[in-house]
Design a binder for these strands. Structure first.
Length: 202
DNA sequence: CCCGTGATTTAT
DNA sequence: TAAATCACGGGG
């Protein structure tokens, strides 16, 4: 299957966040494909966005990856426990990113269950950003990987395109501190999909 | 609903 | 060097 190329990623985060829905995120672990369909995303809009790690041009050891070219992975540890997987988008030095929040598992489910013993049902495997990080065995080694060239981490294009009407747009979660940006409509998920995160359905 | 969790960031 | 913060998940 064809993977997404550079030009796909070199656009603003809200555009790419929506376009990523329905595509397949793949991590090859010990030669085995562990993959899922992207069903929920959030856009982080660069230096103007108060919820973005690169807000006001902040450039720290953690956020440095966000300043790379579109199509680079950005992984960080959250709450000391969870590895969250993002895709850096837009152009180099314009630090936009898309957080992948939920997947519908499609390949390597046995591996995912092993990585997530707490998950009781298939819908619990990847229905949140921390959950999918664990299920796909994502950690800091997967930070700053070029998704266009890597043999082990990339995103494949869906064969059929989605109907725009099946996408729900709403505010992002867990960023109450971001003032006016806390209510911006920058979260996208597939309506009626049972693998979206708990906070998406309330 | 509450609370663990610990690296990273930001304030002294 | 110290304190506060935090793009969450699991178990009640």
């Amino acid at each position: 299957m064809a993977r997404l190329k550079r030009a796909f990623y070199r656009r603003e985060a809200d555009v790419v966040a929506r376009a990523l829905l329905g595509q397949t995120l793949v991590h090859v672990v010990d030669g085995q494909r562990v993959a899922g369909k992207i069903v929920e995303t959030e856009a982080y809009m660069g230096v103007e966005d108060k919820a973005c790690h690169a807000y006001a041009g902040r450039r720290t050891r953690r956020s440095e990856t966000m300043y790379g070219d579109g199509g680079t992975s950005y992984v960080f540890l959250n709450y000391g426990i969870h590895f969250l997987f993002n895709v850096v988008v837009a152009k180099r030095d314009d630090p936009h990113a898309v957080l992948i929040r939920a997947l519908e598992p499609t390949e390597g489910l046995d591996r995912m269950r092993k990585n997530r013993p707490a998950a009781k049902r298939e819908q619990d495997l990847c229905s949140g950003p921390g959950k999918l990080g664990a299920a796909l065995a994502i950690n800091l080694e997967q930070d700053a990987v070029d998704l266009v060239e890597s043999e082990s981490l990339f995103i494949e294009r869906a064969e059929t395109s989605l109907s725009p009407s099946s996408v729900v747009v709403c505010p992002r979660v867990g960023i109450d501190y971001a003032e006016e940006w806390a209510v911006a409509p920058l979260r996208f998920y597939l309506e009626d999909n049972s693998h979206v995160s708990r906070s998406a359905t309330q």
